[in-house]
Amino acid sequence: MAKQLPQWLHSYLIEFDNKRRTTRENALNSLVNALISSPKHEFVEGNHITICHNCLTRLTSKKKGSNKFSKSEICQSVRAISLLVINLVHQDAAHQVFDECLSVLSDALVNFKSHEIDVILEVLWCFGIVGFLGSCNSMEIEKIMLLIWDFLNPNNNNNNNLESSVLGAAIDTWVFLLSGVQRQNLSMKFWKKGISYFSELLMKRKDCGNIDNDNEDVVLAATNALGLIFHIDVIHKFSDKSKEGEDYSSLKEEIFEKIKRNLDGMKFCNLSQIIQVKFMKKILGKEGLRNHMDNNENFHRLFEPLSNNKGKKAADNVVDDAPEREEVVHKYFQHKFKSLNAESDELLTYVSEKEKKVKHRLGKSANSSLNKARTLLLNKQRKAVNQFSIESELYD
């Protein structure tokens, strides 16, 4: 049955260009559900260009003023791109999608109006997935972070009054991307207002009094942003104050307490991992996340401690794995040979030339059986010593 599945998926691609809107939407829905249900590595590797171009066509149509594609179809197209990158194992293919999508997704944040919230949310989430899994280095991730930061900027004429759901999603995506950047690679000049921005955002939402669900999303996103900045210890890169740690000690304590209350019993290795798993859950859903934790090679690489034990919930998969060590005893028995040197030859009454050649071939030649056996034994002894040295470094 599994062998027939790619044929079903190929039929969805054929229906992408159907003239009937309902047929196209059904094909997209089916493709999205298939990519969520379980990883389709082989299928996406062979069709990622086709899927990417077809989906991006729906996004660029808005810029051209076309009404051919419905909002639902555009949303599903953007979700399909996110799932495409999640399923792509080879970095070259994922980076190709990154290059194709970057400018289109950036334009989409400008072209879609504030009332088209569903599309903007999908674009933001897609930005996160494409940047996190499709980029080749921290500079490319930071490039997308800057695009989102500009989108968040209150001085941006297009975004003076962002909806709370959009604001929360934008911060979530920015934090998700931050979790994938090595702290030593973060720029020293781009983020100096980071802590003040998120702190002021929290104060404003707190002063509102009545916090609805959307406002709660903003509060949680801003809390995670500050928490991650403190957690990875990059305060000096996100603050314009001359002093670093001591100025934020009380804020840091308050933020960590809020984060602990929001964990709901989750047991992950660190805050970065919590943020990453929760973001993936937005795209895949609870069941899809579990399936990809078990079977997706990208997730095995990203969340190795969480995906060791298949079939278990992600929250239960984090354990302190005891190192396993296999010991092999190999015994080698070496036959005793009488010395065949010049002195031993003198003890013999007579040694013919033929016998001398035989003795030389058996004992002194580099290709002799004795020397081959000796070389084999020494190589095994060296290998054993090197293995012991490596294991000592790992487990000490």
Rank of each mutant, 00 (worst) to 15 (best):
H300N: 11
R58K: 15
S365W: 04
K282L: 07
N54R: 09
G311H: 06
K267V: 10
C269F: 11
F190T: 07
I171R: 05
N26Q: 11
S199Y: 09
F132W: 08
Q381I: 12
N47T: 05
L284E: 03
S199F: 06
G245K: 15
K19A: 09
N295R: 09
I141R: 15
N309G: 01
K68W: 03
S11H: 08
D118H: 06
N224L: 14
M280F: 15
N386H: 12
L167M: 15
R79H: 08
D321T: 09
N185P: 01
F132G: 01
V85F: 00
R325E: 12
K192F: 05
F43K: 06
Q334H: 12
A222D: 02
G288Y: 03
V85Y: 02
R374M: 13
I14A: 11
N157G: 04
N317F: 01
E15L: 14
K143I: 00
K189I: 12
H330V: 12
K241D: 10
S30N: 14
S250I: 10
H360I: 03
H90T: 09
S242L: 10
D233M: 06
N137L: 06
E253V: 03
A222K: 01
K258P: 00
S106D: 13
W125K: 14
L377Y: 13
A170K: 07
Q4D: 13
K63L: 09
L289Q: 03
C136Y: 12
N29S: 11
K192D: 03
L377W: 06
V219W: 00
V78E: 07
N18E: 12
D99S: 13
A2S: 13
T349E: 13
K40G: 01
F16I: 04
M280Q: 08
R325I: 15
D150T: 13
N213I: 10
T23V: 15
E257Y: 09
F238W: 10
L347P: 00
G194L: 03
D264L: 12
N160Y: 08
E122I: 01
I120K: 15
L162E: 00
S365L: 03
D396S: 14
V218K: 05
E327P: 00
N156F: 06
F303W: 08
I86H: 02
D214C: 07
I141S: 01
S164F: 08
M145G: 02
F268M: 07
V218S: 05
A80P: 01
R290L: 12
G194A: 08
E42A: 12
E100S: 14
L228A: 02
N158G: 03
R21P: 00
I141K: 15
D214T: 06
H41A: 08
N157Q: 14
D118N: 13
E327C: 08
I86W: 00
W149I: 01
S339M: 04
D321Y: 13
L201A: 07
H236F: 09
D294K: 02
P154G: 04
S239L: 02
E42Q: 13
R290C: 02
S165V: 13
N367Y: 11
R325S: 07
H41V: 08
L59P: 01
E326D: 09
G245R: 15
N386Q: 11
I86D: 05
F127Y: 14
G46W: 00
E73F: 04
E391P: 00
Q96L: 07
V78P: 00
E326M: 11
L167N: 09
L376C: 11
E304Q: 11
